[in-house]
Amino acid sequence: MSESSVTDVSPDLAGEPDPGPPELPRTSRQYWTEAAHTGALREVRLPRPGPGEVLIETLHSGISRGTESVVHRGEVPASITAIMQAPFQLGELPFPVSHGYLNVGVVRQGSQALLGQTVFTLAGHREHVVVPEADCHVLPEDCPTERALFAGIGEVGLNALWEAPVLAGDRVAVVGGGLIGLTTALFASKLPLERLQVIEVDADRRALIGSLGLEAVSPEKAATDNDVVLHSSASSAGLATALKIAGDDAVIVEQSWYGTGDQQVPLGADFHARRLRIVATQVGEVPGPRRMRRSRGQRLAAALRMLDPRFDTLISGRSTLQELPTVMADVAGSAPWTREQILHVIDHPLTAHHAFG
Rank of each mutant, 00 (worst) to 15 (best):
A160T: 10
T326R: 15
A82V: 13
L41R: 11
G177S: 09
V175G: 01
R296P: 00
W337E: 14
V345M: 05
P144F: 15
S5P: 00
I180V: 15
K190F: 04
P49S: 02
R339W: 08
L182I: 06
L158P: 02
G288D: 03
L191A: 11
A242S: 15
V44N: 00
V54S: 08
V6A: 13
P47Q: 11
R291S: 14
A216G: 01
L304F: 11
P309Q: 12
V174S: 02
R108V: 04
V104M: 07
P140F: 00
G333M: 07
N103K: 03
R73M: 13
T260H: 03
G210R: 05
I278H: 00
P21S: 12
T81I: 13
T281V: 15
L55S: 05
A280Y: 01
M84S: 10
V174W: 06
L186K: 04
T27W: 05
G74P: 01
V54R: 05
G100K: 02
E194Q: 14
L41I: 12
D170M: 13
T121E: 05
V175W: 12
G100Q: 10
Q197H: 09
A246M: 08
V175S: 04
A352M: 10
S236I: 02
S295A: 02
F187L: 15
G333V: 06
V104R: 09
K244V: 04
V251G: 09
A240T: 06
G210C: 06
V119H: 05
A164E: 06
G124K: 06
A280D: 03
V44L: 11
V251P: 03
G213M: 09
A35Q: 02
S111N: 11
R318L: 03
G176W: 00
V6W: 08
I180R: 10
D202T: 11
E23R: 13
R299S: 09
Y101D: 04
N103E: 14
Q282E: 10
H137D: 01
L243K: 05
L161F: 07
L149I: 05
P77H: 12
E68M: 13
E3L: 14
L59R: 09
V138H: 12
E254W: 09
R65F: 06
D135C: 13
V129R: 01
Q322L: 10
G66F: 14
R299T: 09
P21E: 07
G284Q: 03
A234P: 08
T183M: 07
P336G: 02
G100E: 07
P49H: 09
G157H: 05
G210E: 13
W162R: 15
G62L: 00
T67P: 02
I245T: 00
E163Q: 15
S69P: 05
V129H: 01
A203Y: 05
A185C: 08
T241M: 01
P289F: 14
I245F: 12
R294Y: 14
M84W: 15
L93S: 01
S10P: 04
I83W: 15
R318E: 01
S5G: 14
S232E: 01
L267T: 12
K190T: 14
G105S: 09
R42I: 06
A35D: 08
V107W: 06
D12W: 14
D347F: 04
V71A: 08
W337Y: 08
E57R: 15
P192I: 05
G284M: 08
